[in-house]
Every structure is written in structure tokens, then in C-alpha cells.
Amino acid sequence: MKKAILKLYIYFLFFTIVLISACKDKQLEQEVVTTIQLKLTDAAGVAKTFSWEKKDPNGTAAPIVDTIKMVANKVYTGELTLLNAAVSPISDLTQEIRDKKADHLFVFKPSAANVSIKITDLDANLKPVGLATTWTVQSASNGSINILLKHLPDKTATNPETTGATDIDAIFPIKIQ
């Protein structure tokens, strides 16, 4: 009987080893965007960078968001940068969009702020992308801007914003003086 129990135990060990060793390798994790940086440069070449950042992308804490400050009746060139600041060193994800411009579209939706935004960069099909922009500021006002990044949108649609999946949906406050 003792021998039988020992045998049983050996089977058990054998099973455990077979099962545990059948494990899959850890695969690559998906990239996450933690930070959006908007660099605004005026005609004189003075640049200011505003950021929207949430370092723990799955956490419940609120993001840290800069207020975009602009001067009335001026024109700025805008440049967007996307970062993953949750890893060290910080990785720049903007290149991923530059590599697949046709698959991406930034949508800029100002609210209450007297500013209009025009996309200046184009993809291979001559459709807008949105990494490069021109911001035309009118009279002084306070409001906000909603920046969306659409993945695989239908850029020919009347309202491309309603097509594709939303990868970024962030709001910056705006102060125009």
C-alpha cells in the first residue's frame, strides 16, 4: 500500500512538471500613450509646449493638463508629439503615426475659444493627418480644445470623426489674451 501511494505521488509530480513546463512565453505588451505634447510656435519663432499627461494609464487619478495660453490675433504653427512616459527611457510614439499616416487622423474641436485649426500635413493620398497644424487665433476668450486621434478612419466620409476607432480623446483648456 505504501508503495502504491509513493507511485501515485510520482505520477502527480510528473503531471505537475509536464503541465507547468507547457507554459507560453510572455509576449510583447501593447504600447500606451501617456502624454500628448502640443508645441505652438508663433511667427517670431517663440515656441511653447503644453502637455496632457497621465502616467498611470489604467489608474483612476485625474491627468495633469496644461492650459494652452495664446495671444489674440496671432497665428501659430502647431506640432503634436505622443509619448509613453510610463516606461524608462520615455518612448516617442509619434514616429508610429508618421509611418502610417493614411491610417490616422487627428480631429481638433475647439469649444468657446476663438481659434480655428487647419491641418497642414498630408498622407500619400493627399488626405489630412494632423501632426502639423496652423492655429489662427482671433479675439480674447476662454474655452477648450478637444483633440481626437482616429485610427483607420474613412477620410473621405462627410464626418470622418464618426468612423474608425478612437485612440485618443483628450481635452486641453485654452486661454486667449
Binding site: F12, A22, Q27, Q30, E31, L93, E96, I97, K100, A165
Partner: peptide, 26 residues
């Protein structure tokens, strides 16, 4: 069907979510 930025590869080599659960019982 959707990966941030990159296009989705057609093959099924790399899962976006994957779990393995070995169990031994007596």
C-alpha cells in the same frame, strides 16, 4: 482588430490578451 497606431497583422501569432491555466488535481 485594433492595435494602437500599428496596423493589425493578419496572422494569429501574437495575442493581445492571453491566459494560460494549468491545473493538477487529485
Amino acid at each position: 482588430a485594433h492595435r494602437l497606431f500599428g496596423s493589425v497583422s493578419k496572422d494569429f501569432n501574437q495575442a493581445d490578451a492571453g491566459f494560460e491555466l494549468p491545473t493538477v488535481a487529485l
